[in-house]
């Protein structure tokens, strides 16, 4: 679909769709997850624990259960789905946009938790120093808090991306299996296995396996190096 011949092997379409989905989801999660994580790191509301639990739910919830509720929520009669139809005239379920929204819920804890940990470990005294040096709270956030939480951001980005890339159950429930629209790599692998086309299944699986290994390896190396400074 991108017209690059070298990547035009069977299954390249689903692979690119997955990369796009994971990329967009990661960007959205960093934008949405950062203020949420900052708020969780600093709030003293008694609802904090309840909200933290809610955010963490996708870690333990079976993807099919989550997918089922998201299907209802995003469907044309669901709260989000109905609003989407009114605004855009299209349905969310079985569309790429629907997948992005579903993935954001599904991968939320993988973005919020590393960020929240990083923000909680920040030395508030550094922020005080920044304010007294003339930085507005927003300026101090970007010039001191963000760079000092770089490790948290890296972990959030890597984990959200990798976790979304391997998504299966939620996608199947919400997005189905539409080539070029919702057929992501994990579903393509499932298809190939169903058709007993093991060679193709291997090719795609190895790509995911190597990718998962390399991202984790890089993350561990970077984290260790950061620890030693």
């Amino acid at each position: 679909m991108f017209g690059i011949d070298a990547l035009n092997f069977p299954g390249s379409g689903p692979l690119w769709l997955s990369v796009q989905l994971a990329g967009i989801t990661t960007v959205v999660l960093v934008i949405v997850g950062t203020p949420l994580a900052w708020w969780l790191a600093h709030t003293s509301t008694r609802w904090k624990t309840v909200i933290e639990t809610t955010v963490a739910l996708p870690i333990v919830l079976p993807p099919t259960v989550m997918g089922f509720y998201l299907l209802i929520l995003l469907g044309p009669y669901g709260a989000i789905g109905r609003w989407w139809v009114e605004v855009t005239g299209e349905t969310l379920t079985f569309s790429f946009s629907g997948l992005v929204i579903a993935s954001c819920f599904y991968s939320l804890p993988f973005a919020v938790q590393p960020l929240q940990n990083a923000f909680e470990a920040l030395d508030r005294r550094n922020l005080e120093a920044a304010w007294t040096l003339g930085a507005t709270p927003v300026d101090a956030f970007f010039s001191v808090a963000v760079p000092q939480s770089a490790r948290g951001f890296l972990n959030a980005i890597v984990l959200s991306f990798a976790h979304t890339l391997g998504e299966f159950g939620v996608v199947l429930m919400v997005g189905g299996n539409i080539p070029g629209k919702t057929r992501v790599i994990s579903i393509a692998i499932y298809d190939q296995v169903e058709m007993l086309n093991y060679a193709n299944a291997h090719r795609l699986s190895v790509i995911l396996l190597v990718f998962a290994f390399l991202t984790l390896l890089v993350m561990f190396i970077v984290n260790r190096r950061w620890q030693n400074r």
């Binding site: 005294r125 001191v144 000092q148 770089a150």
Partner: peptide, 10 residues
């Protein structure tokens, strides 16, 4: 100037 330098380590 605080008791500890509070320099930005990054």
């Amino acid at each position: 100037v605080f008791q500890e330098p509070r320099l930005f380590w990054h």
